[in-house]
Simulated scan of single mutants.
Amino acid sequence: MADGGKRPQKKAAQQLVIPRSAAEEQRLKLERLMKNPEKQVPILEKPKDWAPRPPPEFVRDVMGSSAGAGSGEFHVYRHLRRREYMREEFMEKQAAQQRLEEEFQKKLDNNRREAEEKTDKRRKKRQKLKEKKLLAKKAKQDLTETAEGSDENSSSEEEENSPKEKVDDCEEPSFVMGGR
């Protein structure tokens, strides 16, 4: 032995771990994937749906109801009949699935339309409330401006006659109530 009698060491044998639950199995799979993050992960595509062969355009061996048919003819007939039943069943399932899809789309459209109607109604209500608040604010401002204008005329007379009095702001309403 040229390397001094030493044998090359093998990689440490991996321990056999048997997962005891689905979560542990998933954890082990993730750990194995994360050992080499650059490695491509195969993602399986959805398998194509089974579709029957279309019926033949030209039938060569037509079976009639005549007596004396061979013993093998029944098996041929049985096979053709089974294939035709499978084709009909497939078409019925496809029609039912299409009908369900159309109903689902109608329901989605109906829900979307109802949601839009509710949203529009609420939007209009918010807009009316906003306009009402603006009108109330303007009315309050006009009221205070006219009060200030009349107060200025009377206040100049009051200033001459009496000392200044503080006006209590907490007595004024913070909102305008709708009249009845």
Score class of each variant (00 low, 15 high):
residue 49 D to K: 07
residue 41 V to R: 06
residue 47 P to T: 00
residue 46 K to N: 12
residue 137 K to H: 08
residue 85 Y to A: 15
residue 98 Q to V: 04
residue 76 V to F: 00
residue 23 A to F: 04
residue 177 M to H: 07
residue 151 D to Q: 08
residue 4 G to T: 00
residue 30 L to A: 11
residue 61 D to K: 11
residue 103 E to L: 15
residue 111 N to I: 07
residue 12 A to D: 10
residue 143 L to E: 09
residue 32 R to P: 01
residue 108 L to P: 02
residue 25 E to S: 12
residue 113 R to C: 04
residue 30 L to F: 10
residue 61 D to T: 10
residue 124 K to C: 02
residue 176 V to H: 02
residue 146 T to L: 08
residue 145 E to Q: 07
residue 166 K to S: 08
residue 126 R to W: 00
residue 165 E to C: 12
residue 31 E to F: 13
residue 109 D to G: 03
residue 114 E to I: 00
residue 15 Q to D: 14
residue 62 V to S: 03
residue 68 G to C: 01
residue 24 E to N: 03
residue 174 S to R: 10
residue 107 K to A: 10
residue 29 K to N: 07
residue 133 K to E: 00
residue 180 R to T: 05
residue 69 A to S: 10
residue 102 E to C: 03
residue 40 Q to T: 08
residue 143 L to Y: 07
residue 5 G to I: 09
residue 127 Q to M: 02
residue 60 R to E: 09
residue 106 K to T: 12
residue 32 R to D: 11
residue 53 R to E: 15
residue 5 G to E: 14
residue 156 S to C: 10
residue 150 S to T: 09
residue 106 K to A: 09
residue 157 E to M: 15
residue 139 A to G: 06
residue 87 R to H: 02
residue 180 R to G: 07
residue 74 F to P: 00
residue 9 Q to V: 15
residue 4 G to W: 01
residue 89 E to D: 06
residue 84 E to P: 05
residue 29 K to R: 11
residue 101 E to I: 00
residue 122 R to T: 00
residue 41 V to W: 02
residue 176 V to W: 00
residue 165 E to T: 10
residue 167 V to G: 12
residue 33 L to M: 08
residue 102 E to N: 04
residue 101 E to W: 01
residue 170 C to M: 09
residue 108 L to W: 06
residue 147 A to Y: 04
residue 12 A to K: 13
residue 114 E to D: 11
residue 157 E to Q: 06
residue 86 M to Q: 08
residue 155 S to H: 08
residue 179 G to M: 11
residue 36 N to S: 05
residue 73 E to K: 14
residue 87 R to D: 01
residue 142 D to I: 05
residue 157 E to T: 13
residue 107 K to I: 02
residue 100 L to W: 08
residue 47 P to S: 04
residue 106 K to R: 15
residue 115 A to C: 06
residue 57 E to S: 12
residue 107 K to V: 03
residue 135 L to Q: 13
residue 169 D to G: 07
residue 39 K to D: 02
residue 22 A to G: 05
residue 151 D to A: 08
residue 55 P to S: 10
residue 131 E to L: 01
residue 63 M to F: 12
residue 1 M to N: 09
residue 5 G to C: 04
residue 163 P to E: 13
residue 120 D to K: 03
residue 149 G to R: 13
residue 109 D to M: 14
residue 37 P to F: 02
residue 173 P to R: 02
residue 90 F to M: 09
residue 19 P to H: 01
residue 155 S to F: 07
residue 167 V to M: 14
residue 175 F to C: 14
residue 48 K to I: 13
residue 177 M to A: 15
residue 90 F to R: 04
residue 135 L to S: 05
residue 39 K to C: 03
residue 81 R to L: 11
residue 14 Q to S: 13
residue 130 K to F: 02
residue 57 E to P: 04
residue 90 F to K: 03
